[in-house]
């Protein structure tokens, strides 16, 4: 492989991830109910220089012992724009939306490269279709907006130890995409781009439980289950629309039931999304409401003084 001349590269001999002597640890088990979503942490406005930004995390369960610690999803999203298209670009009556999803090199068990691979480009495309149905593009002719997502920590691919080359491109990809959809929705609202509704992502899966019967669970953590099929939807609750659906595996006859469960999972994620958007809007209104009085507020609150600028 040719070395990347713009980055500092690994030693010429090539390195391998450490191999561990087998530890007899029990794989993590699902402690939640089948229809319970993991706790979501969602906050907007983490990148002040961007038009809109948000951070999404599924914090690890504090009850799990440190040795069996599994991935806890961490995603940041920034939205740059809408900004005018460059002069030489062709006319566009709609907002040009581009999405960009990249895993950090340390996001999965196996290190990833710095250059986007095809699975990341695929995630970006799925995200774009999910968002395209929500954004009112006609309101922003001749402009463009970039949605940039960095996955700081991905989701495991399957039960611990089952895969050696764990790149986060198996079952875990669906949870990551659901997180991407929810966080991008929050960031787009934070950027003030008009939307028809809030879109949220949700995943449901058919899994083999301990007695090897098949059950449907919401928001599966792939490390905890043997998954048979999984389904992701991007769902607009108030319009009852699905802008993106992605199903993997053999769902058997009950397709409708699985989709219905995924929609239910998206509805749960939406409650957190609504809270985060409400918080950010309230904060923005509060920042706007005391109109800037040049002389009074500076002295009393110790804020930087306004100065007279001439010329």
């Amino acid at each position: 492989m040719q070395a990347d001349r713009r980055r500092l590269n690994a030693p010429a001999g090539g390195t391998a991830p450490p191999v561990f002597a087998s530890a007899n640890t029990s794989p993590p088990r699902r402690r939640r109910k089948a229809d319970e979503h993991r706790k979501i942490f969602l906050q907007t406005g983490i990148v002040p220089s961007a038009a809109g930004s948000a951070y999404y995390e599924l914090p690890p369960d504090p009850a799990t012992p440190p040795l069996t610690r599994k991935s806890s999803l961490k995603i940041t999203c920034t939205v740059h724009g809408p900004r005018p298209l460059p002069r030489n670009a062709a006319f566009s009556p709609n907002l040009l939306l581009t999405t960009h999803v990249k895993y950090a090199p340390f996001a999965t068990k196996t290190r990833r490269g710095y250059v986007r691979d095809s699975s990341e480009r695929d995630l970006g495309l799925h995200l774009e279709t999910a968002l395209r149905g929500v954004v009112i593009g006609e309101r922003w002719p001749k402009s463009a907006a970039d949605v940039v997502i960095t996955v700081l920590e991905g989701e495991d691919d399957g039960p611990a130890g089952a895969h050696s080359g764990d790149m986060g491109s198996g079952w875990g990809m669906l949870s990551v995409l659901a997180g991407c959809i929810t966080v991008a929705s929050a960031a787009i609202v934070d950027a003030g781009i008009d939307c028809v509704d809030l879109v949220s992502g949700g995943v449901a899966a058919l899994v083999h439980d301990q007695s090897s019967e098949i059950t449907t669970v919401l928001d599966p953590a792939p490390a905890e289950h043997v998954t048979r099929a999984a389904c992701l939807v991007a769902y607009l609750q108030s319009r009852d629309e699905i802008t993106e659906m992605w199903m993997k595996g053999d769902a058997g006859g009950d397709l409708g039931g699985l989709i219905e469960s995924a929609v239910q999972s998206a509805t749960l994620a939406r409650t957190v999304l609504v809270e985060a958007v409400k918080d950010s809007t309230e904060a923005r209104v509060a920042a706007m409401s005391p109109p800037e009085l040049p002389s009074t507020d500076a002295a009393s609150k110790g804020r930087p003084k306004d100065v007279v600028t001439t010329g």
Partner: peptide, 29 residues
């Protein structure tokens, strides 16, 4: 041997001046 391999990534959407999709900027390098 090159046993320490530091790399700085600015193309994470961290600021409008460093949008992703390009090779690392001179600043990042």
């Amino acid at each position: 041997l090159g046993l320490l391999v530091p790399n700085i990534e600015l193309s994470t959407g961290c600021s409008p001046a460093h949008l992703p999709g390009n090779p690392p900027s001179t600043l990042a390098q």
